[in-house]
């Protein structure tokens, strides 16, 4: 069966003054209908960029330089701006990181919801408002009629993120891309928002691309996980398996660095070194300077993502 979203060998480059930075290289993954994929990695690994490039929302001087993004039978990388506008916020919705910054401060919630529906459907204001109210109820917002007339600054952070989620539901999309949807919120609110998102995806059979650096969140919500490092996916597989038995040395480092993997009183583990900058990537495997298993081949050649003996996709020469 055709997957909902199939990203194949996606490459994104940034044309800087003196050089071309290759921010994403050969990123490939699929999300089936109603499937939830977690994209994890350190800051700067290219997670957010991957999410944005699906809807061609990369800001200049970035551009998609290769690969394809098949969604519901169309290659999003080939569409014109007008054509992709029809996908944005309609078939694929996005949820941004900071709900304080995502909603426009001078427009009411009503305006911001109604305009989204009207951008994609020929529908009267009244009908659009009915849909908006329905979705606000769907995300458990108390007294939704009152919210419609309010401005973003009159609402709390958690409430605003609920509204952003409600906006993302307005057109019953097939896929939601959530870019660190809970990072800017209180811990207690974080759990509520993630539960809500999980519930909605299950009920509506929506696909979810969850971009986060929080492994705990990913393991609760997603079925599949893809670990990114310096613009590449280094390990991909079922979430449970990857979290319990990481194979790539980088994933292993990440899991070992979680506080709960250490005994009490013990020093927290960390991966030595920092992620290289895109302008200055090491030769061969980008992770080799920080890797304890590093051999000569790792410095010379770039490992590709391949299916290993366990059935897992791993990009590492040292994993059999």
């Amino acid at each position: 069966m055709q997957p909902l979203l199939e990203v194949k060998n996606l490459c994104v480059e940034f044309a800087m003054r003196s050089q071309v930075l290759r921010a994403l290289r050969d990123v490939s993954f699929t999300i089936g209908k109603g499937e939830r994929l977690g994209l994890v990695g350190e800051s700067g690994a290219g997670k957010t960029l991957t999410g944005f490039s699906i809807l061609n929302l990369i800001s200049k001087p970035g551009y998609i330089s290769g690969g394809s993004i098949l969604f519901e039978g169309r290659d999003l990388a080939e569409l014109t701006i007008e054509q992709i506008r029809d996908i944005r916020g309609n078939r694929i919705s996005m949820i941004f990181q900071d709900p304080m910054m995502t909603l426009n401060p001078v427009l009411t919630i009503r305006t911001q919801m109604v305009e989204t529906i009207k951008a994609h459907q020929k529908i009267s204001d009244k009908e659009a408002e009915k849909i908006a109210l329905d979705k606000l109820q769907r995300v458990y917002i108390p007294s939704p009629e009152k919210r419609l007339d309010q401005y973003p600054h009159e609402l709390s952070g958690g409430m605003r993120q609920r509204i952003v989620i409600a906006i993302s539901l307005l057109t019953n999309p097939g896929l939601i891309i959530a870019d660190e949807p809970t990072t800017a919120l209180d811990v207690t609110i974080q759990a509520e928002i993630m539960d809500l998102l999980l519930e909605l995806c299950r009920d509506e059979d929506m696909g979810l691309l969850l971009i986060t650096h929080d492994l705990a969140v990913v393991s609760e919500v997603t079925q599949k996980i893809a670990v990114m490092y310096a613009g590449r996916i280094v390990e991909m597989g079922p979430t449970r398996d990857v979290v319990d038995h990481p194979e790539h040395p980088y994933t292993r480092g990440l899991i070992a660095a979680l506080p709960q993997s250490c005994d009490q009183g013990q020093r927290l583990l960390q991966i030595p070194g920092i992620m290289p900058s895109l302008a200055n990537l090491p030769s061969g495997c980008s992770f080799h300077p920080r890797c304890e298993l590093c051999q000569d081949i790792c410095k010379r050649e770039v490992p590709v993502l391949e299916t290993k003996a366990s059935g897992r996709h791993v990009a590492c020469f040292m994993v059999k």
């Binding site: 506008r85 944005r88 919705s93 941004f96 426009n104 305009e115």
Partner: peptide, 26 residues
């Protein structure tokens, strides 16, 4: 440069609406 402008694009709004209603009002 604001996030809410990027979000307006992500909602698939027509360019004129993003520029006039979302950006110019601010």
């Amino acid at each position: 440069q604001n996030e809410y402008i990027k979000y307006a694009w992500a909602k698939g709004l027509p360019p004129l609406r993003v520029w006039i209603v979302h950006a110019f009002r601010n």
